[in-house]
Design a protein around this nucleic acid. Sequence first.
DNA 1: CGTGCCATTTACTCAAGAGTAAATAGTATA
DNA 2: TATACTATTTACTCTTGAGTAAATGGCACG
Lengths: 214, 214
Amino acid sequence: MNKSAAPASPAAPGPSPFRNAQQREADRASKRDAVLLAAVHLFNQRGFHATSLDDVAASLGVSKPLIYHYLGGKDQVLFECMRIGLQQLREAADEVARQPGTGMDRLKRFLRRYAECIMEDFSRCVIRTGDETLSPEIRPQFRALKSEIDHAMRKLIAEAAADGSAKVTDVKLTAFAFAGALSWTARWHEPGGALQPAEIAEQMVEILTRGISP
Amino acid sequence: MNKSAAPASPAAPGPSPFRNAQQREADRASKRDAVLLAAVHLFNQRGFHATSLDDVAASLGVSKPLIYHYLGGKDQVLFECMRIGLQQLREAADEVARQPGTGMDRLKRFLRRYAECIMEDFSRCVIRTGDETLSPEIRPQFRALKSEIDHAMRKLIAEAAADGSAKVTDVKLTAFAFAGALSWTARWHEPGGALQPAEIAEQMVEILTRGISP
DNA sequence: CGTGCCATTTACTCAAGAGTAAATAGTATA
DNA sequence: TATACTATTTACTCTTGAGTAAATGGCACG
């Protein structure tokens, strides 16, 4: 009984349930993010095609059309996940670009961050879900973003070679080798496994860069 | 006119159109292979989910039920493709296991063969198509085969470390790094590109193994 | 020769799941 | 208070593509 009880204090000490425009926008953004997070979890776990939007909605306790409300179709959802993943990788590159140190130091720092990203949700999704999954209309956008990161890595390798802190014969192939080795963690590393991502990243970078020390 | 002309020579010098049991079986096998080859091409090009069995059938100029006749459902087709791909990798491992040389020599040989396989149709498909795509019933089989290859690589690395031809701190991680770098070619290398697979394999192996030379 | 198997096709069924229309209710703001 | 907007749901539609039943016709072999 007494289902709709009156509030204890009329002065309302807690946050008001009435939101202003800013708060509503923040609300919306956080709900959007929640959808993306739920989606990326399922995508990584079961694969994109084995995950229906109904599944994503159900995992949040809401209904499918709500996802359309926040994000539009399934392709959009995937692309947003990938965009976030790529953005994180890109931020790693930008951050390192601003830091001091020998080329090799900076390369190592980047590779470590790269590996760590790949073992987190969104960048993981970038690797696990091939670009052929994206609709042909947005695929070029994805490729462009991806390419930026590839080139950032090449640049760091080239700089390390230039300042003598590394010895490299083929920059492009080296970049592919490094990116491949690190990206592959998205396939074999299980989140919550015995080995911590940071350790894996550390050791992996060691293994890879030992080959290009002068 | 003269549509159904009589054969030029009654003695039939060419192969007879009438097949015996063995020939029919060979026929059947070669048709089965043709289906798998057509399928793996499309899977690699467009992705498994974007390829319908109708597409595969059409690319061969036959009808879908014929594929069911030779191979059973779509899952079977994919698994067969992957089985072939894994078998090729496994043969590479077995071959190297029988050869002489230092551990490092043999490891290098294996890595080169591994990379070359990955840039061919079937092994390429193994990498491009994640195991989550397989139905839960056959996935364990796939994993088991995959695991054999992983362990073969680890064994070679361990042997190279044991005979002093390589210096390795963590065998497992090293194997993952190598497998990742080489597997990644399935993602970026386009068949018929400027660089030959053999060259790529050669250089890639060089880049990777330089890091574990003593 | 006729009987039955094998290859192959046509013409279907059926389910899943993406996407949508329209209703409902709560909240903000004039 | 009236009005308009936002969040959210229910209850659909429609397409795609996997898988199947059944018919056809040739070839082999008794």
